[in-house]
């Protein structure tokens, strides 16, 4: 790598910087999706995409600065981002179940009305399961 000519060095450097800029712009677009996403799963998907792009950015940066240890950070980032998605989805499912149970205890009639409305829309095996679980 050391006997590379000056022209090649300049081309590599400019290319890395261009890739970093493009990835940064895409990261902002992802952030817009995360802010606008109507549901919680939308936001988690967008944050996951941002994590993937940040991984590529860290890998490019490690070649631009010629620092090998940044790739280790990238590996750790991948693991932490995966763990974050798993933990957030599990925690949110638990919170949702708890909230649904509290609502059921508070308004049993309102819930029955909901179940009736759901039953009117069509017959699905999932709905039967949920109705059984609620009653």
């Amino acid at each position: 790598m050391s006997e590379k000519s000056a022209v090649l060095e300049m081309i590599y450097r400019n290319m890395y910087i261009a890739v970093l800029v493009i990835l940064a712009v895409m990261l902002f677009v992802c952030l817009i999706r995360a802010v606008r996403g109507p549901r919680v799963a939308d936001r988690i998907v967008a944050v996951n995409m941002m994590g993937t792009m940040v991984m590529v950015m860290i890998a490019v940066l490690s070649l631009l600065l010629k620092e090998g240890f940044l790739v280790d950070i990238c590996l750790i980032y991948a693991m932490v981002s995966f763990l974050a998605v798993v933990v957030i989805s599990m925690v949110y499912m638990g919170v949702y179940a708890e909230r649904a149970q509290r609502r059921r205890q508070k308004y049993p009639q309102g819930h029955n009305r909901e179940a009736d409305r759901a039953g009117m829309q069509g017959t699905e095996p999932e709905k039967g399961e949920s109705a059984n679980g609620n009653s």
Binding site: R39, V40, A41, I44, V45, N48, V85, S89, Y92, M93, Y96, A97
Partner: peptide, 8 residues
């Protein structure tokens, strides 16, 4: 994530 969406 798909399970989260289907459950909630």
């Amino acid at each position: 994530l798909a399970r989260l969406e289907v459950v909630t």
